[in-house]
């Protein structure tokens, strides 16, 4: 099939960008979306033009490197699918596709479709862990964890930190990402002792970088791992409790 692509090109973070149009000819349905871009890039190189920069790595939907807006949707039209797992058989000959980077003030453009998502690391750094030193752990079966709790924690922990939730949110909020990280740890008994310190720190750090949540629900639709916004409710409840408990000052142990 032959497609027409409109791709956002921007040489660097501070440089102005614009859409450029490319003909992607001879595309097959077996190609993934990124392989289609590989083909376009090979031809650009042949013509002596610099290829389109985009982040990608595992191409199995687990590393979270890839992701951009495809026709206005983060990771494109297929639910629960990262861009690397989106295949061209969903498209038809003659289609036009608009491709642009994730748009959020917390994710500055690095180049073309690549953005900087370091702000996510700062949220984890603020408290997204259990404070225990290597070698100090008791036997793994000492504390039973009810299977439903472990399963729910795993649902939350399957977040790949791609940033689609932020890109899809009209406010550029990172509630779903932060809530998923919090739920993963807070649902496990090992995460309980630091639960309220954790929620307060991570949410406060999140607000330094990201917009505010107004329950639009776009994040859940865009999430390639289909993480539920129920976790945001859990975040809000815990955050409220944390504030009533008097903040982090009394429990600031690290």
């Amino acid at each position: 099939m032959d497609l027409t692509l409109h791709v956002w090109r921007q040489p660097g973070p501070d440089a102005p960008g614009q859409f450029e149009t490319y003909e992607a000819t001879g595309i097959t349905g077996e190609m993934s979306f990124l392989e289609m871009l590989d083909v376009v890039n090979e031809r650009l190189i042949e013509e002596g033009r610099e290829p389109i920069a985009f982040d990608h790595d595992c191409r199995e939907g687990i590393c979270g490197s890839c992701g951009f807006m495809i026709d206005g949707q983060a990771h494109g039209p297929q639910r629960g699918t990262a861009a690397c797992q989106l295949h061209m058989r969903l498209y038809n000959d003659g289609d036009e596709i608009w491709i642009e980077p994730f748009r959020a003030s917390a994710f500055p453009v690095v180049r073309d479709l690549a953005v900087n998502r370091t702000a996510f690391d700062h949220i984890v750094q603020a408290g997204g862990y259990v404070s225990q030193a290597t070698g100090s752990a008791p036997d793994a079966n000492l504390i039973p964890v009810p299977k439903p709790d472990a399963d729910l924690a795993m649902d939350a922990a399957s977040c790949i930190a791609c940033g689609a939730c932020v890109a899809a949110c009209p406010n550029g909020a990172a509630q779903l990402y932060t809530a998923a990280k919090l739920a993963h740890l807070n649902l496990m008994p090992q995460g309980e002792p630091e639960r309220y310190v954790r929620v307060e720190r991570m949410v406060d750090t999140m607000e330094d970088y990201f917009g505010s949540c107004t329950n639009m629900g776009e994040c859940e639709v865009a999430c390639p791992k289909e993480i539920s916004i129920d976790f945001i409710a859990m975040l809000n409840k815990d955050y409220r409790k944390a504030k009533f408990r008097g903040g982090t000052s009394q429990a600031n142990t690290r």
Partner: peptide
């Protein structure tokens, strides 16, 4: 395994 469980890794149960 002890170490990872203590970190909150959600192993299958």
């Amino acid at each position: 395994i002890d170490q990872c469980v203590a970190q909150g890794v959600p192993f299958a149960r």
